[in-house]
């Protein structure tokens, strides 16, 4: 199939970017979106032009590295899919596809479609872990965790940190990402001990990184590749309010 591409080209975070037009004539319906971009890059390199830079790693939908705005939607038209798991069969012959990087003040553009999402790492570093003394792993069954608890915590832990929630949010809020980690750890006995300190430092870090506030439009869950529930945000708010108001 023939595909017209309008791809955002930007030299670095300081320079001004713009859409550039490209045409591909032999795109297979079975190609993934990233493979289609690979094809374009091979063509560009052969022509002596700079290839389009984009983030990717596992290409099987679990690492959270890839992620661009495709036709104005994070990870493209298919719901609950990463960019690498989107295939060209989702498009029609002759389509024009707009490809833009995730845009938010906290996600500076490195080049073309590549953005710096270190801000998300800083949020995790602020408290998204369980502090334990190192040593041998304890016996797994010594701390009882019910199946339902484990499943519910795992649903939140499924977040791959791609940043689609921030890109899809009108406020550029990272509430879904941050709350997924807080909710995941708060539901397990090992993590719950530090919930109060964790929620405050992670939320503060989220603000410091320059993300916006959550106004519950719920766009984040709709576009999330892992369908992380917005109720995690409510849980984060609950834990935050509790830590601020009730706990010392």
């Amino acid at each position: 199939m023939k595909i017209n591409l309008k791809i955002w080209r930007q030299r670095d975070s300081q320079s001004k970017g713009e859409f550039k037009e490209y045409h591909l004539d032999e795109v297979s319906r079975d190609m993934s979106f990233l493979e289609m971009l690979d094809t374009l890059n091979i063509k560009l390199i052969k022509q002596g032009e700079n290839p389009v830079e984009f983030d990717h790693d596992c290409r099987e939908g679990i690492c959270g590295q890839c992620g661009v705005m495709i036709n104005g939607i994070a990870h493209g038209p298919l719901k609950n899919t990463t960019t690498c798991q989107l295939h060209m069969r989702s498009f029609n012959d002759g389509d024009t596809i707009y490809v833009e990087p995730f845009k938010a003040a906290a996600f500076p553009i490195v080049r073309d479609l590549k953005v710096n999402r270190s801000a998300l790492d800083h949020i995790i570093a602020a408290g998204g872990y369980v502090s334990v003394d190192t040593g041998q792993a304890p016996e797994a069954n010594s701390i009882p965790v019910t199946f339902e608890q484990a499943e519910s915590a795992f649903d939140a832990a499924a977040c791959i940190g791609c940043g689609a929630c921030v890109a899809s949010c009108k406020n550029s809020s990272a509430a879904l990402f941050t709350s997924a980690k807080i909710s995941h750890l708060a539901q397990l006995p090992q993590g719950d001990k530090e919930t109060s300190t964790r929620v405050i430092s992670m939320v503060n870090q989220m603000d410091e990184e320059g993300f916006g506030h959550c106004t519950n439009t719920e766009a984040c869950q709709v576009e999330c590749p892992e369908d992380i529930s917005v109720l995690n945000i409510a849980r984060m708010n609950y834990e935050y309010n509790r830590a601020r108001v009730v706990k010392k």
Binding site: F19, I73, K103, A104, S172, E218, A219, V222, E223
Partner: peptide
């Protein structure tokens, strides 16, 4: 402040009311 530069092609509206 958090939005920074806006999208040139934006169809995010499909995900919310």
């Amino acid at each position: 402040k958090a939005n920074g530069i806006s999208y040139s092609y934006d169809r995010r509206g499909r995900a919310s009311t």
